[in-house]
Design a protein around this nucleic acid. Structure first.
Ligand SMILES: [Mn+2]
Ligand SMILES: [Mn+2]
Ligand SMILES: [Mn+2]
Ligand SMILES: [Mn+2]
Lengths: 219, 219
DNA sequence: GAATAATTTTAGATTAATCTAAAAATTAGT
DNA sequence: ACTAATTTTTAGATTAATCTAAAATTATTC
């Protein structure tokens, strides 16, 4: 059995590991879990004994196949619950993360299966993140960031890579929501800010910091 | 803040207290929480310091108004989630208790409010137990047990006071479900077993042990 | 290729929740 | 009203998860 705490560590290691595609450092885990490096060292030793991570002192950590399986199950639950909260209960996309952070640890295969079915087997969560299926397989998803799009191109918004409430509420305010069509009108070479036009209607400016965190696909 | 564990203790004290309407003994709590009396003593001291129970050594324990408020919130969440699991996800009434036992600790006023609304503000859970409202007020509910009904009377099944999977599955098997009309055809004076007839169809025998755990209302 | 800086681990404590065994208090039986 | 039985509390340990401070290791820089 994996505890609440262990599951959160595994999820963090999964996330950091898939970003860099290499060993994850103790400090990186400490930052993400909001703990201290000393606590992380202890936990890594423990997870290693449980064969959920492969870990050599001072050499960083990776998930084992078993550890990845557990992480993917938790991520699956997190994202399914987020879909439920938004689609069924009417929450806004900026309100669901913390609640899903608790719901994700509830342990019942049958519950997950029935929830998945009730939601119509969704492939993406309200932030555009892919939902692993029953076997832990992530739907394919090859997006670019809006910052990578060339002047004149038109794309569709598919997700975000920053999940803070502040960022999501800002996107709401400027009507940048999933599915929106975005045309890049102009790129400022000095600060990489963009002038864009949404669904052939209103034009607006966004900073490079914002465009980097918006995931899009070319039509 | 109240922990998982504290909430479970408060719920147990609430339950035992409302059954006997007096102070609850350490041993009774230990039995219900599946712990030892020594652990309960410790916890009662702690809950007492937090002003959630009034407790004098050796004299048993009671909830304070604040403790009762917390207990009722947890019970409200437990029962709302049970309704969700049965009504929306299609679980059977004997499968939902353990899952609700985890869901009940998720802490979000907004989640509870939205869930309540989504379910249509139900007053009773799938076992016929009353759901406290937003202010902690329990719907009125003055049922008799089937064991108290006289020969020849006809009643409607409104709930159960035993929640084990075995008992609920047995009731399913004999078609004794909430809302069923029950007529007491005969009472065996020796062992208090009953011959009953359901919704003017099949007649069957049930033991006193069973009839004691079935809650009914006279039409 | 040392010396210094940064990172990581260990040592030793703390807090919450639990246990067993022993001591204390209450209740019951004569 | 004692004594015996039962219940409850305390004492002392244990386990999981965390922390701070110190030691050990690895990385960087001149
Ligand atoms: Mn979590
Ligand atoms: Mn998400
Ligand atoms: Mn519980
Ligand atoms: Mn119930």
């Amino acid at each position: 059995m994996t505890s609440f705490t262990e599951e959160n560590y595994l999820k963090v290691i999964y996330k950091l590991s898939s970003e860099t595609d290499s060993e994850v450092s103790t400090n990186a885990v400490a930052e993400q879990t909001q703990t201290k490096a000393a606590s992380v060292s202890d936990m890594l030793r423990k997870l290693s004994e449980k064969k959920l991570v492969s870990y050599q002192k001072y050499q960083g950590v990776r998930l084992t196949a078993e550890g990845e399986k557990v992480a993917l199950k938790v991520i699956r639950k997190h994202r399914l619950w987020e879909v439920f909260l938004v689609e069924k209960l009417g929450f806004n996309w900026d309100e669901v993360h913390d609640i899903a952070e608790e719901l994700e640890h509830i342990d019942s295969e049958k519950l997950v299966a029935k929830l998945d079915e009730y939601l119509g087997f969704p492939s993406f969560d309200p932030h555009g993140d892919p939902i692993p299926d029953h076997h832990g397989v992530m739907p394919a998803q090859t997006y670019l960031t809006l910052a990578e799009i060339k002047k004149g191109e038109e794309v569709i918004m598919m997700g975000v890579s920053e999940h803070s409430s502040a960022f999501l509420q800002y996107l709401d305010k400027i009507n940048l929501v999933l599915g929106t069509s975005i045309e890049v009108l102009d790129i400022n070479n000095f600060d990489k800010s963009l002038q864009i036009i949404l669904s052939q209607e209103n034009s607006l400016f966004i900073t490079h910091e914002v465009s980097k965190n918006i995931l899009v696909k070319v039509q």
